[in-house]
Design a protein around this nucleic acid. Structure first.
Length: 187
DNA sequence: GATACCTTTCCTGCTT
DNA sequence: CAAGCAGGAAAGGTAT
C-alpha cells in the first residue's frame, strides 16, 4: 500500500496551514478521496484477515439509510476533489486526529455536515454525524474497526495536553490553547 | 534496541 | 433503552 513519508506530511501540513484560504483550490494529484475508496476496494483481503468487514451480512442488515447517505456523501466528495475545488490535501495529510478534525471543519466541501462550528470565534464545534466521522477517521488510518466510542477516547486525551478543552455538552468540543490553525483570522 | 508520542482497544461506571 | 462521557490500563504503531 502506498504511504507518504511522515516528514513529507508534516512539511506539507505546515505549508498548507499558513496558506489556507477560503478560495484556495488545491488539486492533489497524488491522493484523493476516490483513491482512498478505490484502495479499499483493491485490498479486500484486509477485511478477511481481521475477520471484520464493512459489508458482511450482519453489517448489511444493520445498515441504515443514513449510512448509505453518508457513504454517498463521501464518494461525492471524491468527485469534488477531482474538480480541484476542495481542501482535500489538508484533510488527507494531517497525521494527528485533532488536525484531521480541524481540517475537516475547514473543508465544508468534504465535511458533508459531519462536523459543524458551534462558535467559530471560540473554536467550539459539534460532531453532527459521529458514526460517519469515525468511519472517515478509520479510512485515514486504514482501520475499519474504528468507532466513535474509540475516537472520542482519543479526543479526551487531548484535554490533558490543551489541544482540546472540555465542553459539557454532548458531542461538543472546543479547541484549546495548544491547538493551532483553526482560527479564521490566522489562516 | 530503547524510548517517546499518539493513539487504539477494552472496560467499568455514570449521565443524558 | 441507546448513545455519550470519564478515565484507567495496557497494547500497538511509528518515528527518532
Amino acid at each position: 500500500m502506498p504511504s507518504l513519508p511522515h516528514s513529507h506530511r508534516v512539511m506539507l501540513d505546515s505549508v498548507t496551514h499558513s496558506t489556507f484560504l477560503p478560495n484556495a483550490s488545491f488539486c492533489d494529484p497524488l491522493m484523493s478521496w476516490t483513491d482512498l475508496f478505490s484502495s479499499e476496494e483493491y485490498y479486500p483481503a484486509f477485511e478477511h484477515q481481521t475477520g471484520y468487514s464493512f459489508f458482511n451480512d450482519a453489517e448489511e442488515s444493520k445498515a441504515t439509510i443514513k449510512d448509505y447517505a453518508d457513504s454517498n456523501c463521501l464518494k461525492t466528495s471524491g468527485i469534488k476533489s477531482q474538480d480541484c475545488h476542495s481542501h482535500s490535501r489538508t484533510s488527507l495529510q494531517s497525521s494527528h486526529l485533532w488536525e484531521f478534525v480541524r481540517d475537516l471543519l475547514l473543508s465544508p466541501e468534504e465535511n458533508c455536515g459531519i462536523l459543524e462550528w458551534e462558535d467559530r470565534e471560540q473554536g467550539i464545534f459539534r460532531v453532527v454525524k459521529s458514526e460517519a466521522l469515525a468511519k472517515m477517521w478509520g479510512q485515514r488510518k486504514k482501520n475499519d474497526r474504528m468507532t466513535y466510542e474509540k475516537l472520542s477516547r482519543a479526543l479526551r486525551y487531548y484535554y490533558k495536553t490543551g489541544i482540546l478543552e472540555r465542553v459539557d455538552r454532548r458531542l461538543v468540543y472546543k479547541f484549546g490553547k495548544n491547538a493551532h490553525g483553526w482560527q479564521e483570522d490566522k489562516l
